Amino acid sequence: MKKLLTISILALLSACGDKESESTEAKNILENLTYSVDTVVVNPGDNIIDLSNGSMFSSVSLDEQKFYHFDYNKTAINEVDLQKLELTDRYQFSKEGPNSIGFNPPTIQPLSDDRFLFVSSGINVGTYSKGGEKLTSLKSLVSD
């Protein structure tokens, strides 16, 4: 009986064992890996577009013709024409004072009539003209 149990266990173990592959060559699993990179070249004219902070706080116009890149270091918005692929304007804003957009990097949303909505976490929510003037403070409406 003991021999039968030993033979059964050996048979079971050999049946569950992995099968060795017949090829001992190393296979390159990344052999068919491909990728592509999209690059957009924009003519900045005489200006420099600072992309050190990326485009996380940027937005596209409602008609999808303009790209608004927020430059945190200069507290400015760079307007890029998406058809011409060139910098067409720069709008300066303020971090301090009555027209302050706040110290945190804001989320921006272009609105109609040459206005922007700025949402700066915990500090400010408001609409601003392209000239940098605060038109409406919406912070009290949002926090209530």
Rank of each mutant, 00 (worst) to 15 (best):
F118E: 00
T88W: 05
D18G: 07
F70I: 05
N43I: 10
D114Q: 10
A76N: 12
T136R: 09
K139E: 03
R90A: 05
D63L: 04
Y91T: 02
T107P: 03
S59W: 04
C16M: 15
S14F: 12
N28Y: 11
R90I: 10
F118H: 00
L10E: 04
I108L: 03
N28F: 11
T24Y: 06
N73E: 12
P110K: 03
D38T: 15
L33W: 09
E22H: 04
T24H: 07
S94A: 13
D71W: 06
S14I: 11
Q65H: 11
D144Q: 15
G97R: 06
H69L: 14
V41D: 09
V119K: 03
D89N: 13
D89H: 08
D50N: 13
L111I: 03
V60K: 02
K3W: 11
H69R: 07
Q83W: 05
E133A: 10
T107D: 15
R115P: 00
F57K: 08
V125P: 02
E20V: 00
Y128W: 01
N47C: 06
G97N: 10
I123Q: 14
N47G: 04
S120Y: 00
S14C: 09
T88H: 07
S21I: 01
S61G: 08
K134Q: 09
T34Y: 07
S23Y: 03
L33K: 07
G122K: 10
D18N: 14
L85A: 13
L30S: 11
L4N: 08
Q92A: 12
Y68Q: 04
F116D: 01
K27Y: 09
K66C: 06
Q109D: 03
K27P: 02
P105V: 01
S121G: 06
T34C: 05
K95W: 15
E96K: 12
L87E: 01
V42K: 09
A26G: 12
D81P: 06
T6C: 03
V37F: 07
I49N: 04
K27W: 06
S112H: 15
I9F: 07
Q83D: 11
S61H: 00
Q109F: 10
V142E: 02
I29H: 12
I77H: 01
L5H: 08
P106W: 02
R115L: 14
L138Y: 05
